[in-house]
Write a protein that binds this DNA or RNA. Structure first.
Lengths: 146, 146
DNA sequence: CCTTGACCTCAAGTTCACCTGAGGTATTAG
DNA sequence: CTAATACCTCAGGTGAACTTGAGGTCAAGG
């Protein structure tokens, strides 16, 4: 079957392995998130390390991280060859804060829902729930006080 | 300043406190995510417990949970009066699984990035990183093997 | 009373993250 | 060689989540 030079994957193969649609892969390539070489007949061939990149994109998306952020982080990764340990370390560092923030927000939300419910206060008017703005730790658009 | 009946907030006030734009509040109302009473002059007035609802919407969004999911969960909450302990408990239950899933994915991503980097394997070809599809635990579109 | 800023509705526009379809080329099993 | 897939490009469409703008109303200070 595969008369391919070695470990180069066709786009359909990549799609099956990652669960990402072919059209999405085209799209990610347009954005520069992934890259491929071409056969003589202009078909894309992917190196195996792209699978990892794509999986990261998928998970990031699931966590509500926009592709533009992924793109930013990926600029420090080489497109042409498998990233080195040093490369990944850099990515890890860049995302650590972001991921920690997500985790904190997850915790807030869960504490809001379960923690406080378990804390015994009968009325939700008690507790610190009266001022959700500081309880939930806004950070994005952020509430401005005037 | 506030000659308001009591604890009713104007939309601008709500916008400031939650950091959510007025236009977005209109939009959320259209979707039925939030509700307001009107003054004689047709202006919206919000009860204080809406702030909590709105904050939940904000955090959920941040975590990549679509508004349709929020909507679904909110159907069990009363729009006209402050939700009871029982109401919140129901919401908490509904979201628990979802939030746990998010947490798991966060963990996967972080392990992928930092855990394995710290594990001492020099080449990323070693380790289980060779097959990112099972390492990252796909669950949505999911990779199908043929 | 009058002005200013906050508010209203409704329609249309925007951004993101893709998907769909048309029309054509590549690759490979038989 | 041929037929069945798989792949290509490019244009336009889709759905979610809003934002913007036009054209007007409401509320409160001076």
């Amino acid at each position: 079957m595969a008369l391919e030079p070695d470990d180069l994957l066709a786009i359909g193969e990549v799609s099956h392995r990652t669960g990402v649609a072919v059209s999405a892969l085209h799209f990610y390539e347009q954005l520069g998130l992934i890259a491929s070489t071409r056969t003589a007949g202009n078909q894309r061939r992917y190196r195996r390390h792209m699978l990892r990149r794509i999986s990261l994109i998928v998970v990031a998306k699931r966590l509500g991280i926009p592709l533009s952020d992924v793109q930013e982080v990926f600029t420090s990764l080489p497109l042409d060859h498998s990233p080195s340990l040093r490369d990944w370390r850099r990515v890890a560092k860049l995302w650590h804060a972001e991921l920690e923030q997500r985790r904190t927000q997850l915790d807030s939300l869960q504490r809001e829902l379960t923690g406080c419910i378990g804390c015994g206060c009968v009325s939700l008017k008690a507790c610190r729930l009266l001022n959700p703005e500081d309880a939930l730790g806004e950070d994005g658009p952020g509430p401005r006080r005037i």
